[in-house]
Amino acid sequence: MALPNKKHARIQASVSPEGFTVLSLQFSSDSPARHSVFVKEHKVRAQKSSGRPLDRTLFVLNIPPYCSEAVVKDLFSQFGSVRSVELRDHPGSFEESGPKLSRFFKPAEKQGFKVGYVVFESPSSVAAAKSHPHDEPLVVCTELRPVKTGVQKWIQQYSRSFIHTEELQQTVDSFMQDYDKRKEEEAEREKQEAEKQQEDEEGWIKVTRGHKGAKARPHSEAANQRVLQREKNKKMRKELLNFYSWQHKKTQKEHIAELRKKFEEDKQRIALMRAQRKFRPY
């Protein structure tokens, strides 16, 4: 009875104490060396983005440098249909804002082990990947999926580094068209918001009905400042000036001090003009 138990223990997947399942990678079928990657279900409640669904995303650690996104997708496709693969240098939030840059304008990737997020079409594929036996390695390089390394990889990267002028021009034109379109949409959106916040002479704001499900937008800061300034001006016009005798005396003193200051300035100006009008025959 001991042999079946040992066989069953050998078939079961090896689970690390941190909750990761260990999967074995083998570069080729005749390679004696094996590499271990660690996988577990992606469960980050703070991320509610559709790019990484919580029930269909597999988090992978220790991906070797020779595994590209296409290679990782082919490796995990045996567990089910893969929708997308994302490789990064460090774990982080999903980035979906902003335009997607072309390969010509992307910075050089760091060479090293990476982390990955594999998104499947079905939740059962995540469970299938986690239950894969550790003794059955996933073969990276096959006849149908050759992976180049060493000098062949360097030659391939060098040949891809040359950029064709026509392809680069098409990429630039496409990017600029998307950029102009985004700018036009931004300007139109700002114009609509300005029209919504536009006030008439009496300070009323025209309220228009937005699209279905839109929430009411509060007044802008500039509109609030204009309303406060208008109320302040009204309050100043209503105040009685020089109503009390001490207010009248204070106003007279300030007026006399202002006249004396101007008189002194005029005296200095006249003295300067006289000094400049001296007779100079030579």
Rank of each mutant, 00 (worst) to 15 (best):
E96P: 05
G98C: 02
P99W: 04
K100C: 06
S102Q: 08
R103M: 09
F104P: 01
F105Q: 14
F105K: 13
P107N: 02
K110P: 03
K114W: 00
V115A: 02
V115Y: 05
V115C: 06
V118R: 07
V119L: 00
F120I: 00
F120L: 00
F120K: 00
E121W: 00
E121H: 02
V126N: 01
V126P: 01
A128P: 01
A129M: 00
S131T: 12
S131P: 01
H132I: 03
H132V: 00
H134G: 03
E136T: 06
P137D: 00
P137V: 01
L138N: 02
V140R: 03
V140C: 02
C141S: 08
P146Y: 05
T149Y: 00
G150D: 03
Q156N: 09
Q156G: 03
Q157M: 15
Y158P: 04
Y158C: 10
S159M: 09
S159K: 10
R160N: 07
R160Y: 04
S161V: 02
S161R: 08
F162C: 13
E166W: 10
E167A: 12
Q169C: 14
Q170G: 14
T171A: 14
D173P: 07
F175K: 13
F175P: 10
D180I: 15
R182S: 07
E184T: 12
A187E: 08
R189V: 00
E190V: 11
A194W: 07
E195I: 05
Q198F: 01
D200S: 02
E201H: 04
E201Q: 09
G203A: 03
W204V: 07
W204E: 07
K206Y: 08
V207W: 10
T208E: 13
R209T: 14
R209E: 14
G210P: 15
H211I: 14
K212W: 08
A216K: 15
P218W: 03
P218R: 12
H219S: 12
S220H: 03
A222L: 06
A223V: 12
A223N: 11
N224D: 08
